[in-house]
Design a protein around this nucleic acid. Structure first.
Lengths: 168, 168
DNA sequence: ATATCTGCAAATGTTTTGCACTTTT
DNA sequence: AAAAGTGCAAAACATTTGCAGATAT
């Protein structure tokens, strides 16, 4: 499901077109970020992306990461979500279908799901009120009962050791 | 739909019981906040509540407002929401039914709605994945088309004048 | 050439915290 | 008296911004 190298390069080109249309410039930092981001699975924060770039030996600043993420989002390369934990999270959008998220309140694992009936009903609700639905945000906060009960949830154990957040 | 004075006092007492169960104390500030909060309609931020208390001549600090809001939320007096604009928003929970929110991306108006089919489907989704649904967060970001087109949306006009945020 | 970018450091805005003092229980 | 709460100012955090120098078109 990860994009091939060729697909990533096509996306770089597409992003360049997006930038050109707005009279913005393609830079080494932006190019690198498109590549890194499309190669990522799961969700990541601005800070996680920044660290990844640094550990890859890239030369970027946090400010540039934030400025680029905003553009990557507008350009449809990534999608941003707010899981109500104080940090915006991103995920690769290119070539992915729309989905919503279940977040385990115990271990913070993120599980994706799609439910077309819910999507349709949302549209109907908006219409019924005379509005146009532009976007939505749906998170289900769940509990991984079995893992929870046995205390063996691997992600929770990891989190309690102080490791970085779990991702679905 | 606003609670009567008697209902508010009953809520103060109930909150006191909640506190006592946890070996916490009822204070003048907390008592006042329960009253003020239950009297409010619409959504408010911590800062808005703080200003309201000050203008009422109450003696509170921002720190106490934040600490109390956390307790009020746990005690079921208020419910907190994250509308992805960087500030947590609260609303009176006591005696209110569950509902979700539509937020106009143009004027930031907040409209409440309830859809039982969506609720049921959320439960089913969680169950289908082997999880227990503990909570959810659903926001529909909409556009008030007519107002938008005519440029007469009262809330937008108000917002552009620099007034405080609109509430549904 | 010129408009846009970048990095840095400083600023921002919201929320949290340490601490000495005050208030409930 | 003991335990918890308060205000204040400082800290913590994620994110944004001003500006001078660097880079893309």
């Amino acid at each position: 499901m990860e994009p091939t190298a060729a697909e990533i390069e096509a996306a770089v080109t597409a992003f360049e077109v997006f930038l050109r249309d707005r009279r913005l410039k393609m830079t080494e930092q932006r190019r690198t970020m498109v590549r890194v981001v499309l190669d990522k699975r799961g969700h990541f924060t601005a800070d996680e992306l920044y660290r990844k770039l640094l550990s890859d030996g890239e030369s970027v600043s946090m400010a540039t990461v934030y400025r680029a993420l905003a553009l990557l989002e507008e350009g449809g390369v990534v999608e941003g979500h707010d899981f109500a934990d104080g940090q915006r999270r991103y995920e690769r959008a290119l070539g992915r279908e729309h989905h919503d998220h279940m977040i385990c309140v115990d271990c913070r694992a993120v599980i994706e799901f799609t439910n077309h009936d819910i999507e349709r009903l949302q549209d109907e609700v908006a219409k019924a009120h005379g509005f146009t639905l532009k976007d939505h945000s749906l998170q289900l906060f769940v509990e991984c009962r079995d893992w929870h009960e046995t205390g063996t949830c691997p992600r929770r154990v990891e989190r309690e050791r102080g490791a970085s957040g779990a991702q679905g």
